[in-house]
Design a protein around this nucleic acid. Structure first.
Lengths: 178, 178
DNA sequence: CATTCTCTTGAATGGCAATCAAGGAGAATT
DNA sequence: AATTCTCCTTGATTGCCATTCAAGAGAATG
């Protein structure tokens, strides 16, 4: 609960900017969205964005947090028949925000904020994946390697434009071994 | 053999620029190397670079071709005791040019020239890898999936800063199955 | 009513890739 | 030898972009 009207407006306004940013970053991409366009879409001037956010990367982090939250909520509601299905679902979700994914990997190097977000994201997803794979009976010595291979494979699928059937067989191979 | 002195100079000058670019792009990164700095390092003015190259990406492609050539020559000379060794060798080579690797994945999206180079690179490496894995007795139905998983895993290793022991166990898992 | 705090904006600033416009230097043609 | 032509080089400019500066307006507070 905000302490006063001023704080309330602050959050609302911030959210409006994030909402506009989410739509533009996902549809056109972060790099293809100058601050000015974002400002116009949010109905403010460019400088107003800098009142609410330190820089463009901080807007991106807010968008990422929002998307992650929404998709994680979704994830917890879905039940999967097997691990292959689960991986394919994740790939599909990430493909809907593939421009965000590649932007994160790009800006990682130059933005500390994005770097931190990325690390947390990996820690979280690797944790979830490890738990799932334990129930599948993956040997603990190979666990770390297999978790990372799975994560890297999913990331590769997102950035390398692979046929649908290859996607399926890759997820199957990850889930069932060779 | 160049047809005249003019052509000869042209190639030499081009090479000087590429040599300077190679060193800067590998050490500092492509994005952190403005055309002006590159020009100074090559002993020419910025515009001269645009006489020899269409744009900055074309310089990058020339650098990539040179590095690829050098490392492929090296690769053909080395003999490996097993597939794990081979994968680790490749990872080590790529780590020496990790800034180039991440730049390629970044500029892929905005530069047609880099995109083409990247596709060729993948076609080549996947071809080599497939041949190796055939000798290891990988089932042909799973071949495409396993090749791509290996490539994606190697790319993941490069961009995600993984401990040395994890690198080894990942390459082992890729080489021996799970 | 003066002061301060929150918010907003138009106008810089500075970095960068890329282009323009103006030559110079040597080879080929007259 | 003079002229033209082609290759090469460069200083100055353009245009895009993120970010900062400087100047306020309006509400809240003393």
């Amino acid at each position: 609960m905000p302490r006063n009207k001023s704080d309330q407006n602050r959050e609302e306004k911030r959210d409006e900017i994030v909402t506009a940013a989410r739509s533009l970053f996902i549809k056109d991409g972060f790099e293809a969205t100058p601050i000015n366009r974002l400002a116009r879409a949010a109905g403010v001037s460019a400088n107003t964005i800098y009142w609410y956010f330190k820089d463009k990367d901080e807007v991106l982090v807010a968008v990422l947090d929002g998307e992650l939250n929404a998709r994680m909520t979704e994830y917890l509601k879905v039940t999967f028949t097997n691990h292959t299905e689960r991986l394919l679902w994740v790939v599909n979700q990430l493909e809907e925000v593939s421009l965000l994914v590649s932007t994160v990997h790009t800006r990682l190097q130059s933005s500390a904020a994005i770097n931190v977000w990325h690390e947390r994201f990996h820690a979280m997803t690797e944790g979830l994946l490890r738990a799932e794979m334990q129930t599948l009976g993956v040997a603990s010595e190979k666990m770390d390697a297999l978790v990372k291979i799975s994560v890297f494979a999913v990331e590769g699928l997102l950035s390398h434009d692979v046929s649908g059937s290859d996607k399926t067989s890759i997820c199957e191979a990850l889930a069932t071994g060779w």
